[in-house]
Design a binder for these strands. Structure first.
Length: 556
RNA sequence: GCGCCUGUAGCUCAGCUGGAUAGAGCAACGGACUUCUAAUCCGUAGGUCGCAGGUUCGAGUCCUGCCAGGCGCACCA
């Protein structure tokens, strides 16, 4: 719709130039926007204002010349107005909007998708928590954001791969093994101390118990080092399975699970270090190996191999990001908790140093979640092992409510997540507000079919729209028409909450319409037209919710 | 001290990458269920967009400096 308005203006401007009404045929980039107020029309352009300097004319004069020469062959424009400093406002005929409904029904679950991304290969990596314990609330927000960003990018025409990076190597895994081993020893009545920096949660005891049940004395008679190693391997795989299950229950799907250890097994970390050494990007100081990240914009150089010979996490991260680009992604997106933001510079530096371009690398920093219950903060301490897990949240408030709330606000802001509100089926809880639209419409359509107004729930709609003339109906269609732009904007800014905000607006418009006008009336022609409209609303609600990973129920 | 994020209605937040008169929800107040689902709707009230400068036809939006809050500044991950 916007495109055709734009074309109308450009054609008008060209004609005005040919007639000598405009001095230049250089037409700068203009905006076509939807004004806030109905009195300012359906669309509005700043063409005259942005052209003022090129034309050396007053904006209003330019606007007059363009309007005078516009030729609306499709007769979509009811009238135009020149307003304010030189805006040209377009008022469309109601009939101009009807084709939108046909498009929606025809494209169905593809409506809103586009070629915006041009098939570019994008990787979104998110959550990537260590397999040393269950996922908690912070991970939950990251999971909701990463999964939604992936879905939105895919819908907007990118070739998306969603990946989880498993930190299954290094110190934290050894600590995990030690934790399980010590719990095992305690179970067997051995006198051992359980250090503070070991994992405290009860799940460690469960795993020890489980492993003992499986291996018995085969395990407990082992030397300590071997025992710890067995425990580490077992615990990590059990916990990872749990993470996978919890994410699946949260509706999060991955295309790939990538193991950090595999970077070592295939010598990629060693090779990266050797390559950088050869390029003099790595030097030795105080017995450690340092990467010259400062030369690439980081505040200081960073250690990749400690003086005890053990590589740092950063070392494998360098190899990992190199590996990502080697896989041919045009764009690499990492979703991180805001507390990791200090890490961005060094990753950027390492990417530039490795000959890739850090412009193709984006980090989505998700701000922290404040977990509340009835307005009171819920104590979160991973040290004592007492925290609310992702599983707890899914069990308590459900996947839909949780995901919707996590995506309701920009991830640039901290989020208060109140378990009590999320459980309540009240108007404070937005997920029901939107899902209710879908269920309501399903009910209406079912009734229409039952009463014989519709032959089935996917009838032929051709020509039905002509009866739609109420302002609330046109408002709804306009909203539906803007959905593809919303998806595009959400993809361009990597902000899923844009879709949330849109769904709330659409739901509000529908509920208002529903309360004011009956869909099924005595007039069967009118009824069919309105059923056409609400069917389109239902599809767009479903498509939007699906981008956020939220279900669209047929009844509630 | 340095860096990232935030500051808009009493509360929680939108605000279309510079547009015209500032937008929702909640809370408050007043209304609407014999109806296609009231998990809904309609109305009233509520603002010095943290403060001060700057950029231009035009700033909540961009720049600079302050102020306040959150989070980071390891040979941890």
């Amino acid at each position: 719709m916007k495109e055709s308005i734009k074309q109308l203006i450009l054609d008008g401007a060209r004609k005005a130039y040919e007639k000598g009404l405009l001095k230049s045929d250089d037409f700068p980039e203009m905006e076509i926007e939807e004004p806030r107020y109905d009195a300012q029309g359906d669309f509005s352009t700043n063409f005259a204002m942005v052209s003022a300097s090129v034309q050396k004319m007053a904006p209003r004069k330019i606007a007059e010349a363009v309007v005078a020469c516009m030729d609306d062959t499709q007769s979509v424009v009811e009238k135009t107005e020149i307003a304010g400093p030189g805006f040209i406002n377009f008022f469309l005929t109601t009939a101009a909007w009807y084709p939108v409904l046909e498009t929606i029904v025809r494209e169905d679950d593809r409506y809103g998708s586009s070629e915006f991304g041009g098939g570019k290969k994008v990787q979104v990596e998110f959550v990537s928590a260590n397999p040393t314990g269950p996922l908690h609330v912070g991970h939950a927000r990251g999971a909701a954001v990463g999964d939604a960003v992936g879905k939105i990018l895919a819908f907007a025409g990118f070739d998306v791969q969603k990946e989880y990076y498993i930190n299954d190597s290094g110190r934290q895994i050894r600590t995990l093994g030690l934790s399980v081993w010590l719990r095992l020893c305690q179970m067997l009545g051995r006198e051992v101390e359980f250090p503070k920096d070991c994992y405290q949660g009860d799940y460690i005891k469960d795993i020890a118990q489980e492993l003992h049940g499986k291996m018995g004395t085969d395990l407990s008679d082992k030397e300590e080092a071997e025992g710890i190693s067995i425990c580490a391997k077992y615990a990590a795989s059990v916990i990872l399975e749990g993470i996978k299950e919890d994410l699946a229950a949260f509706g999060v799907e991955y295309d790939q699970w990538f193991s950090e250890q595999s970077l070592y097994d295939t010598n990629r970390v060693q090779k990266a270090i050797e390559d950088f050494k050869a390029k003099d990007l790595i030097y030795e100081k105080d017995g450690a190996l340092w990467f010259r990240t400062e030369d690439f914009g980081d505040e200081k150089d960073r250690v990749v191999v400690r003086n005890n010979g053990i590589t740092t996490y950063f070392a494998s991260d360098i190899a990992y990001h190199m590996e990502k680009f080697d896989r041919g992604f045009d764009r690499v997106i990492d979703v991180w908790g805001a507390d990791h933001h200090g890490y961005i510079n060094r990753i950027n530096a390492s990417i530039d140093a490795s000959g890739k371009n850090s412009d193709q690398f984006d980090v989505i920093l998700v701000q922290l979640v404040n977990l509340l219950r009835g307005g009171q903060p819920v104590a979160m301490s991973s040290r004592s092992g007492e925290f609310v897990t992702l599983k707890d949240i899914v069990d308590e408030v459900g996947k839909d409510a949780a995901r919707f709330l996590f995506l309701s606000r920009s991830y640039d802001s901290g989020l208060d997540f109140d378990l009590e509100v999320a459980t309540q089926k009240t108007s404070e809880n937005p997920v029901f507000y939107v899902q209710y639209v879908h269920a309501r419409i399903a009910g209406i359509v079912a009734k229409a079919v039952a009463e014989g107004i519709l032959a089935n729930d996917a009838p032929e709609w051709a020509g039905c729209a002509a009866v739609l003339v109420e302002p609330e109906e046109i408002k709804l269609i306009k909203l539906l028409a803007s959905f593809p732009e919303i998806v595009e904007k959400s993809a361009a800014t990597l902000h899923p909450h844009v879709v949330f905000t849109y769904l709330m607006a659409l739901a509000s418009a529908f509920h208002g319409y529903y309360n004011k006008h009956k869909v099924i009336t005595q007039d069967s022609e009118l009824s069919r037209g309105r059923l056409f409209l609400v069917t389109a609303v239902k599809k767009v609600i479903r498509n939007g919710l699906s981008l956020l990973g939220v279900s669209a129920p047929e009844r509630m």
